[in-house]
Write a protein that binds this DNA or RNA. Structure first.
Lengths: 200, 200
DNA sequence: GTCTATAGCCCGATAGAC
DNA sequence: GTCTATCGGGCTATAGAC
């Protein structure tokens, strides 16, 4: 047999997970390296055996997360599905990402804006633009083909979808009464058909 | 004539406005008293002639804002309007608040969670509960009376409305192409009737 | 109402022992 | 891989001169 394909998480990976939880809960700037070390049961200086800096920790968390997310998005966009199906799949992917990688999503939501000003995090700006282009192209195609209503501002529609999906990281918890799939379905129900009762 | 009813803003009020802008842009914790003093053109020590502490500044910003907002909400809830009209009025009030008091809304969105842990900010927790009860009662009445669809989780519906409205503070700017009233109308159009094209 | 000057503390990061 | 010990600097807040 070959070596186990899923080795026990390395100490380094464990420390990164601890850091991500704290960054997500308290914010990147307000979490200190001493907070991270305390949570890991070591002293702050020992962290620098594993990582160059606090900044390189958050960099690794965000870049790893975004690489995985975009790989999933690209597969949907490249598919032959119609607009509505693509939109539904993108929303499901996003809620699954919140479920699987909540800390990374929260850090992205809360701290990416401040980090993106630094050259080191230029990829955050680039990915943001890529994300907006992807969604806007899809929305515009939906309006053109009649899948989406045509009396709304497309830019506002984009922001509405983007915000409603990601802001759920603020309250969604993996063990809660509704799973990521159910939440995605109900969100899509509101997003596509609205809260108002149907005229019968 | 009586004394002018709207005196020129006091130095104190001006400093508080400067602080609110910075808190909103960079976050409460990461904004330093030196940042505020620099923006006001004075030295950090001089701020303490006007305010007890940085904490008392953010306290005054948030408590003043919330008192005004709840006064407006209460008038709607106490009215004789039907559920749908009340819901529309509440959303319009919220977007008007973002338009009028953007810094306070942003600070509330970004920093209230961390501040609420302190006893001094217990009113944030109380108001949050009051806000949720107000909205949940309205949503449940809407479902009961047939104004809102009955196949969705009411708690999730509450979160959806709450989040979609307030998260707009992240991108809305007073001088932009769409005013607060137009944004509120389009948000309500999506929220109540959905993005999907109507079957004709 | 603002300035000068500083107290006391916490921050990220480093050097070298074990 | 973690510890001891610490550097240089930024933080909130204060005391007293002007």
């Amino acid at each position: 047999m070959a070596a186990a394909p899923v080795p026990a998480p390395s100490r380094r990976a464990e420390l990164l997970r601890i850091a991500a939880d704290l960054f997500a809960e308290r914010g990147y700037k307000t979490t200190t390296v001493r907070d991270i070390a305390d949570a890991a049961g070591i002293l702050s200086g020992s962290l620098y055996h594993h990582f160059d800096s606090k900044e390189s920790m958050v960099d690794e968390i965000l870049s790893t997360f975004q690489a995985g997310l975009f790989a999933e998005y690209d597969a949907v966009i490249a598919s032959e599905d119609d607009v509505r199906t693509k939109l539904e799949r993108l929303v499901h992917i996003s809620f699954a990402a919140i479920d699987r990688d909540r800390p990374a999503v929260a850090i992205f939501q809360n701290d990416a804006g401040a980090l993106a000003a630094d050259d080191r995090f230029a990829y955050l700006r680039e990915n943001n633009e890529r994300f907006q282009t992807m969604w806007s192209d899809l929305i515009n195609e939906g309006i053109r083909t009649g899948a989406l209503r045509d009396d709304l501002d497309p830019v506002l529609t984009y922001r509405f979808i983007r915000d409603t999906v990601w802001v759920a990281v603020g309250w969604y918890r993996p063990g809660g009464p509704l799973g990521a799939t159910e939440v995605a379905e109900q969100y899509l129900a509101i997003l596509l058909d609205g809260l108002g009762a149907r005229a019968s």
